[in-house]
Design a protein around this nucleic acid. Sequence first.
RNA 1: GUGGCCGUAGCUCAUCAGGUAGAGCACCGGAUUGUGACUCCGGAGGUGGCGGGUUCGAGACCCGUCGGCCACCCCA
Length: 426
Amino acid sequence: MSNIRAIRGMNDILPNETPAWQQLEAVVAATVRGYGYGEIRLPVVEHTELFKRSIGEVTDIVEKEMYTFNDRNDESLTLRPEGTAGCVRAAIQQGLLSVPQRLWYAGPMFRYERPQKGRQRQFHQVGVEAFGIATPDIDAELILLSARLWHQLGLSSSVTLQLNSIGSNESRAAYRAALVAYLAQHRDALDADSQRRLESNPLRILDSKNPDTQALLDGAPELSEYLDEESQADFARLCELLTAAGVEFDVNPRLVRGLDYYNKTVFEWVTDQLGAQGTICAGGRYDGLVAQLGGKATPGIGFAMGLERLVLLMEEVGSVAHDSARADVYVIAGGDLAHQCALVQVERLRDAHAGLRIVQHVGGGSIKSQIKKADKSGAMVALIWGETEVDEGTVTLKPLRGQGQQLTLPLAALPEALDTALSVES
RNA sequence: GUGGCCGUAGCUCAUCAGGUAGAGCACCGGAUUGUGACUCCGGAGGUGGCGGGUUCGAGACCCGUCGGCCACCCCA
């Protein structure tokens, strides 16, 4: 019958792709460390209720994109569609919020969406969250951190920062009413999706891609006119700090968020090099979320970035440092006895040369075919044990790149000879 | 959930008025006795995504289904 395939939208990341991921992950880990953020590791599965209460009941994520199921105890569980909710839950539950906290995490997220470029059903995010700091200096810090990441990854010239403030819940509610009032007068001019959102989530109409809808919005009330004083002041301060730090940004008054918990600062890093899924990183403030999930009122702010999209972008701009070699040294043996002898010596070599990639040929075959494998492995040198070498207690060192000469030497001389061979050839 | 394009060897792709498939790369072996890269020779590998239909006959036409890509939508 037909073979079992991976689940749609849940991709294998193959050995030729993992170096880019490792590169990305290493840069992220080093950068967040440099800002004093601590890593937190969170479950992939949470109570469904957590996401309903944080993301919002009427969002698309909760309504139609979550992997929700009942466990054997008949409890409704959900594969996390994003990381902030779980992070906040853990911070409350583990009592991390009595002092300001800077946290980060990485891992797979799950959303039932139609797969396309830069969008899959299991995808990976890195999230960075800061709790207990209400002032906009932390907003600036997070954005500077993200900007540094792009710099480290060679992506700075490929991304731009979109910035906005969506204000307090009260000011946003007032704006929402005004927007609905305006759009309701022009209901017929709205596209079908926007008409539907008029009831469910009118602010989302602001970032509609429909040109007619966007044109209609030109005459609509502006969110910025409804901002409360504090939000205005904080946003101005944030802009000031970013400018002082030399971070360029575009204020986009129609930038909103698809998750309900955001307030005040929202931002997105976008690129035009990935097609339709151009947001590589997005976040904002969520001052009400901790209290909403049962914790003591604590301000919060954070962002998440999509690792698949970042890897795509890194490949797009050629900032992936790929080295095709899988080995530094390839070990060849002629016959079982020689293989056994080589096996022992190679383990000693690994003791002495930690970090060196030593691949020992297995599965037999002629010396010729083994040398072919050695060549294809990308190794700089081959070590050969044949009958002669075993009898004489020697080993043959054959350089595979450059014009070094092959030589047979006593085992005791091998470590040093290997060092020189590798340093000369590299 | 909607739409467009697509689904032939491991990979990239071809072929043909519909008559039961080919190339390049990769892989394996050989070109005298234990030595790669270049070259030459040879070999293996496909129930043409899956199921049904039309036909004397289908990979080629039709329908369905699954999958892929892109876009809508959504969002990281």
